[in-house]
């Protein structure tokens, strides 16, 4: 982290916080879709715990974003009243659940980045961000542990489970690159000592996932091409719009109601 601290402008900091909060919002929503439908009871409970953690983290990040923006919006206002083009989550987390293998692979690929990001944020020059990161990293450590175990268990399980995990990896790998690409907002956060340069996290990420893929007998896809447009908001996938019609419907349909 740079030693010369430059105060970020409000807009950049707001963007950054939305990126963190929208990731957990969208992924938490996706994971919560499994409740009542998981392959086995114990897994149903575990996934619900993950979703609950992510929803809790969402409130922390987006409430802080609202405070920074200082326009009277809180976490709920941001979550339930922005449209697709204002969302700042990674493309990876808005991908649909697919089968259980796809869900777990998505979780693993995200958790590995999320934990390293949170670990770095614990050193943030912004005390509030550091505090949120510290609390969240305890939860995400567990998410990563569980996801890793399941990726390995299914990757090196039966022929069918192996095939499904490989398919999931092939499908989701093109969304990994976006996590490590820096843009102007990231550069502002680095200059302010608030957050790490995304590119700096790539090497450790590769080591971690490569090790897991080896044990899971999975083959890492050759191309590292990565789709973009999620965290910048410039181009989300078609999936996000559908998700928001579910998630936001009640608040949009009854705008004068409180719940």
């Amino acid at each position: 982290m740079s030693t010369a601290i430059i105060d970020p402008n409000k807009g950049d900091l707001f963007e950054f916080l939305c990126r963190m909060g929208d990731n957990t919002l969208v992924l938490g929503h996706r994971v919560s879709e499994w409740c009542g439908h998981a392959p086995v009871l114990e897994e149903d409970i575990a996934l619900a715990n993950t979703a609950l953690d992510l929803i809790g983290q969402t409130t922390l990040w987006l409430d802080l974003a609202g405070k920074v923006e200082d326009a009277g919006r809180d976490a709920d206002r941001l979550a339930f009243h922005r449209d697709v083009w204002d969302f700042r989550n990674l493309l990876l987390v808005e991908q649909p659940n697919g089968d259980f293998g796809q869900t777990i692979m998505r979780q693993f690929l995200f958790d590995a980045w999320h934990l390293s990001q949170l670990t770095a944020l614990m050193e943030s020059s912004d005390a509030q961000i550091a505090a949120i990161a510290e609390k969240s990293s305890k939860e995400v450590t567990y998410h990563l542990e569980r996801a890793t175990d399941t990726v390995i268990g299914l990757g090196d399980g039966t022929e069918e489970s192996h095939r499904r995990m490989q398919n999931a990896l092939d499908l989701l790998w093109p969304y990994v690159g976006e996590m490590f690409v820096a843009d102007a907002v990231d550069e502002a956060m680095v200059a302010a000592g608030i957050a790490p340069d995304p590119a700096s996290l790539r090497a450790a990420y590769d080591t971690l996932v490569n090790d897991v893929f080896t044990v899971a007998t999975l083959t890492r896809p050759e191309s590292d091409f990565g789709h973009r447009g999620g965290k910048s908001g410039k181009r989300h996938s078609e999936h996000l719009g559908h998700m928001l019609t579910q998630m936001q419907w009640l608040q949009r349909a009854y705008p004068d109601a409180t719940w």
């Binding site: 409740c35 009542g36 149903d44 619900a48 339930f80 009640l250 719940w259």
Partner: peptide, 24 residues
């Protein structure tokens, strides 16, 4: 579980999810 994805606030979503999780 039918209403988890349509819960109207983050808090209601978490509470409902925790309840349904309890049933499991």
């Amino acid at each position: 579980g039918n209403w988890i994805t349509r819960a109207p606030t983050l808090e209601r979503k978490a509470i409902l999810l925790a309840k349904v999780q309890d049933e499991a």
